[in-house]
Write a protein that binds this DNA or RNA. Structure first.
Lengths: 121, 121
DNA sequence: CTCTATGCAAAAACTTTGCAGGGAT
DNA sequence: ATCCCTGCAAAGTTTTTGCATAGAG
């Protein structure tokens, strides 16, 4: 998915900050926290939060809180569940598609917390 | 489960604050946020956070973040999944036991986010 | 009596808002 | 030219920490 296309579809302006943020998410292919992003991109925190907020409203990104109590953002693509290790705080994207039918509720995301194979030894 | 027993097993001191917190969780039988607790109990926030933190370390409570971006705490009992509605922010404890086997990872909690039946209309 | 918990206040961490100037369309 | 976006600074929220006193075992 082209960044230009994403931005234009939502009728947003393509600024340098937005391009950098989206490029980072597309390249990294994994959930990133504010700190992760700050490491790669220098940008005012207000700009960061405002853009992330807009991206979430427009469903370009979505977020969840991990075990380290930090918020992680991810580009919205193929829906998938996340496994979060309570020992090493690692986040694993699970390939399995989400097809649970829960009491007629519509399921969007699944967050699974536990201990990963590595930490189980 | 008696509060006295819980506290003694973890070799903690049973103070008025701790008794109030645990009584509230046992009575309410659902996840509670800091604000929920503050409504029912008057207690310094430092005391609250220190006790909650200790309870989590001792696995008396566990927590997760809901859709309203508030942290919800729950007494550790029979493991169960939670359904969080992204529309009305309601939290539903699911009866289904957690027996997923995920890539040899040990699963503790599952958080399912979506739209509940009521909000789907 | 000893050691931990509490309350208050201050600080740290995280996120949002106001405003003036800059940039995209 | 217009309207949205950005950076800076300030304020708002949420959570943590230091310290002296109070309370549990």
């Amino acid at each position: 998915m082209q960044i230009e296309t994403i931005i234009q579809e939502k009728k947003l302006k393509l600024t340098a900050a937005r391009k950098e943020i989206l490029e980072l998410f597309i390249d990294s292919q994994k959930p990133l926290s504010y700190d992760d992003i700050k490491e790669s991109i220098s940008m005012d925190k207000a700009t960061f939060y405002r853009n992330i907020s807009k991206f979430e409203t427009e469903s370009i990104l979505h977020s969840f809180e991990s075990n380290d109590k930090k918020r992680y953002y991810e580009i919205t693509g193929t829906p998938h569940a996340h496994f979060i290790c309570k020992e090493c705080n690692s986040i694993e994207c699970l390939e399995e598609s989400i097809n649970l039918k829960i009491k007629n509720h519509t399921v969007h995301d699944i967050l699974i917390k536990g201990i990963c194979q590595k930490c189980m030894g």
